[in-house]
């Protein structure tokens, strides 16, 4: 079953990546990073439950708890930045900030 969990986790991560690349709404792009976190959580816990050798461990679950804390901090900071950017330009379009990119 380990491979099945890894498949689902990888698929969730990839969907998040594709969404991050293709969507143009700042909030949706942040949501896609959270989707990538979900894929990583599934992978970590599956590796803890079905280890390649030895007995199951709790390390994957503990790492996932740390990941939850970091995700909460990232959401607070990221959404504060999104609100600030929205107040500058009045739009959530990420192309409104394309001057930040090197051209």
């Amino acid at each position: 079953m380990l491979a099945a969990y890894l498949l689902v986790g990888g698929a969730l991560f990839t969907l998040g990546l594709v969404g991050f690349v293709t969507r143009r709404n700042l909030i949706i792009m942040f949501l896609c990073t959270e989707l990538m976190f979900q894929g990583i959580v599934i992978n970590l816990v599956a590796f803890g439950r079905y280890p390649l050798d030895g007995q199951p461990t709790l390390d994957g679950q503990v790492f996932s708890l740390f990941l939850l804390a970091v995700a909460a901090a990232e959401a607070a900071l990221g959404l504060a930045l999104v609100v600030l950017l929205y107040r500058y330009k009045g739009t959530l379009d990420v192309d409104a900030w394309k001057l930040l990119r090197d051209e």
């Binding site: 293709t22 143009r24 739009t91 192309d95």
Partner: peptide
């Protein structure tokens, strides 16, 4: 919004 209607380089 219009930027939600069209994906970028799908």
């Amino acid at each position: 919004a219009p930027y939600d209607q069209r994906a970028r380089e799908p």
